[in-house]
Protein backbone atom coordinates (compact mmCIF):
# COMPACT_ATOMS: atom_id res chain seq x y z
CA UNK A 1 0.00 0.00 0.00
CA UNK A 2 1.28 3.46 -0.96
CA UNK A 3 2.45 5.18 2.26
CA UNK A 4 1.70 8.68 0.99
CA UNK A 5 -1.84 7.67 0.01
CA UNK A 6 -2.30 6.13 3.46
CA UNK A 7 -1.05 9.29 5.16
CA UNK A 8 -3.33 11.49 3.09
CA UNK A 9 -6.29 9.23 3.89
CA UNK A 10 -5.44 9.23 7.59
CA UNK A 11 -5.27 13.04 7.57
CA UNK A 12 -8.68 13.28 5.87
CA UNK A 13 -10.20 10.90 8.40
CA UNK A 14 -8.71 12.70 11.40
CA UNK A 15 -10.12 15.98 10.09
CA UNK A 16 -13.51 14.47 9.40
CA UNK A 17 -13.88 13.02 12.88
CA UNK A 18 -12.19 15.62 15.09
CA UNK A 19 -13.39 18.71 13.26
CA UNK A 20 -16.90 17.54 12.38
CA UNK A 21 -17.87 15.81 15.60
CA UNK A 22 -15.56 17.35 18.19
CA UNK A 23 -15.09 20.85 16.68
CA UNK A 24 -11.34 20.60 17.27
CA UNK A 25 -9.24 22.94 15.11
CA UNK A 26 -6.09 21.14 13.99
CA UNK A 27 -3.01 21.23 11.79
CA UNK A 28 -0.95 18.32 10.60
CA UNK A 29 2.59 17.92 11.86
CA UNK A 30 5.59 16.88 9.81
CA UNK A 31 6.90 14.85 12.77
CA UNK A 32 7.71 11.32 11.68
CA UNK A 33 7.99 9.69 15.10
CA UNK A 34 6.52 10.17 18.60
CA UNK A 35 9.91 11.52 19.72
CA UNK A 36 9.69 14.29 17.13
CA UNK A 37 6.09 15.13 18.06
CA UNK A 38 6.39 15.19 21.84
CA UNK A 39 9.56 16.39 23.50
CA UNK A 40 9.28 13.54 25.97
CA UNK A 41 6.50 11.06 25.05
CA UNK A 42 6.89 9.29 28.40
CA UNK A 43 6.11 12.55 30.25
CA UNK A 44 3.15 13.56 28.07
CA UNK A 45 0.60 11.49 30.07
CA UNK A 46 -0.64 9.83 26.91
CA UNK A 47 -3.70 7.62 26.57
CA UNK A 48 -3.46 4.98 23.85
CA UNK A 49 -6.04 2.97 21.93
CA UNK A 50 -5.46 0.21 19.42
CA UNK A 51 -7.86 -1.23 16.83
CA UNK A 52 -7.03 -4.16 14.58
CA UNK A 53 -8.38 -4.50 11.06
CA UNK A 54 -8.40 -7.15 8.36
CA UNK A 55 -9.16 -6.79 4.69
CA UNK A 56 -7.21 -6.25 1.46
CA UNK A 57 -4.40 -5.49 3.87
CA UNK A 58 -4.32 -6.05 7.61
CA UNK A 59 -2.80 -4.48 10.69
CA UNK A 60 -3.81 -2.11 13.41
CA UNK A 61 -4.37 1.57 14.02
CA UNK A 62 -2.93 3.17 17.11
CA UNK A 63 -4.19 6.48 18.50
CA UNK A 64 -2.28 8.51 21.09
CA UNK A 65 -3.73 11.51 22.90
CA UNK A 66 -2.73 13.40 26.06
CA UNK A 67 -5.15 12.59 28.88
CA UNK A 68 -5.97 16.28 29.42
CA UNK A 69 -7.15 16.67 25.83
CA UNK A 70 -9.09 13.41 26.14
CA UNK A 71 -10.95 14.86 29.14
CA UNK A 72 -11.63 18.14 27.30
CA UNK A 73 -13.00 16.35 24.22
CA UNK A 74 -15.17 14.03 26.32
CA UNK A 75 -16.62 16.91 28.34
CA UNK A 76 -17.46 18.86 25.17
CA UNK A 77 -18.83 15.76 23.41
CA UNK A 78 -21.12 14.84 26.28
CA UNK A 79 -21.96 18.42 27.22
CA UNK A 80 -20.82 18.10 30.85
CA UNK A 81 -18.28 19.86 33.07
CA UNK A 82 -14.71 18.53 32.88
CA UNK A 83 -14.73 17.73 36.60
CA UNK A 84 -17.85 15.61 36.13
CA UNK A 85 -16.37 13.29 33.47
CA UNK A 86 -15.69 9.79 34.83
CA UNK A 87 -12.31 8.36 33.67
CA UNK A 88 -14.05 5.42 31.98
CA UNK A 89 -16.05 7.81 29.80
CA UNK A 90 -12.80 9.47 28.70
CA UNK A 91 -11.42 6.07 27.77
CA UNK A 92 -14.62 5.10 25.93
CA UNK A 93 -14.73 8.39 24.05
CA UNK A 94 -11.13 8.05 22.91
CA UNK A 95 -11.89 4.47 21.81
CA UNK A 96 -14.89 5.73 19.85
CA UNK A 97 -12.75 8.43 18.20
CA UNK A 98 -10.40 5.74 16.90
CA UNK A 99 -13.35 3.59 15.82
CA UNK A 100 -14.69 6.46 13.72
CA UNK A 101 -11.27 7.34 12.31
CA UNK A 102 -10.78 3.70 11.30
CA UNK A 103 -14.17 3.45 9.57
CA UNK A 104 -13.58 6.72 7.79
CA UNK A 105 -10.03 5.78 6.74
CA UNK A 106 -11.09 2.56 5.05
CA UNK A 107 -14.18 3.96 3.38
CA UNK A 108 -12.12 6.83 1.94
CA UNK A 109 -9.34 4.44 0.93
CA UNK A 110 -11.62 2.04 -0.94
CA UNK A 111 -15.38 2.00 -0.47
CA UNK A 112 -15.66 -1.17 -2.58
CA UNK A 113 -13.55 -3.18 -0.16
CA UNK A 114 -14.77 -4.68 3.09
CA UNK A 115 -12.48 -4.28 6.07
CA UNK A 116 -13.41 -6.11 9.25
CA UNK A 117 -12.74 -3.76 12.14
CA UNK A 118 -11.93 -5.05 15.59
CA UNK A 119 -13.20 -3.50 18.79
CA UNK A 120 -11.02 -0.55 19.89
CA UNK A 121 -9.10 -1.35 23.05
CA UNK A 122 -7.24 0.92 25.42
CA UNK A 123 -3.65 -0.10 25.84
CA UNK A 124 -0.58 1.25 27.60
CA UNK A 125 1.09 4.26 26.01
CA UNK A 126 4.39 2.44 26.29
CA UNK A 127 3.12 -0.49 24.20
CA UNK A 128 1.53 1.86 21.70
CA UNK A 129 4.71 3.88 21.34
CA UNK A 130 6.66 0.67 20.80
CA UNK A 131 4.16 -0.41 18.12
CA UNK A 132 4.66 2.81 16.21
CA UNK A 133 8.35 1.93 16.01
CA UNK A 134 7.53 -1.47 14.46
CA UNK A 135 10.34 -2.86 12.31
CA UNK A 136 7.64 -3.62 9.69
CA UNK A 137 7.22 0.12 9.42
CA UNK A 138 4.41 2.23 10.79
CA UNK A 139 2.75 5.10 8.96
CA UNK A 140 2.81 7.88 11.55
CA UNK A 141 0.76 11.07 11.44
CA UNK A 142 1.15 13.75 14.10
CA UNK A 143 -1.49 16.38 14.72
CA UNK A 144 -1.11 19.81 16.32
CA UNK A 145 -4.14 21.23 18.09
CA UNK A 146 -4.28 24.68 19.66
CA UNK A 147 -2.47 23.59 22.82
CA UNK A 148 -1.76 19.91 22.46
CA UNK A 149 -0.51 17.14 20.16
CA UNK A 150 -2.00 13.81 19.16
CA UNK A 151 -0.94 11.03 16.81
CA UNK A 152 -2.36 8.26 14.65
CA UNK A 153 -0.21 5.41 13.41
CA UNK A 154 -1.01 2.55 11.09
CA UNK A 155 1.00 -0.56 11.84
CA UNK A 156 1.08 -3.35 9.26
CA UNK A 157 0.42 -6.92 10.37
Amino acid sequence: MDRELLKKTMRNSISEVLEKMFFLPLDFSEAGTPGELWEDPAAADLMAVRLSFAGPFSGSLVFLIPRKLGVDLTADFMGVEKDAVPPEHVEQTVEEILNMIAGSTFSILDDQAVYELGIPESTSAQQALAATSSPRGAVFQGVDTLDSRIALALVGA
Partner: peptide, 9 residues
Protein backbone atom coordinates in the same frame (compact mmCIF):
# COMPACT_ATOMS: atom_id res chain seq x y z
CA UNK B 1 -25.48 4.57 12.90
CA UNK B 2 -22.07 3.19 12.17
CA UNK B 3 -18.53 3.82 11.02
CA UNK B 4 -18.98 1.16 8.30
CA UNK B 5 -18.54 2.79 4.94
CA UNK B 6 -18.05 0.01 2.38
CA UNK B 7 -20.71 -0.19 -0.31
CA UNK B 8 -21.01 -3.94 0.16
CA UNK B 9 -21.72 -3.58 3.86
Amino acid sequence: VTTEGSRER
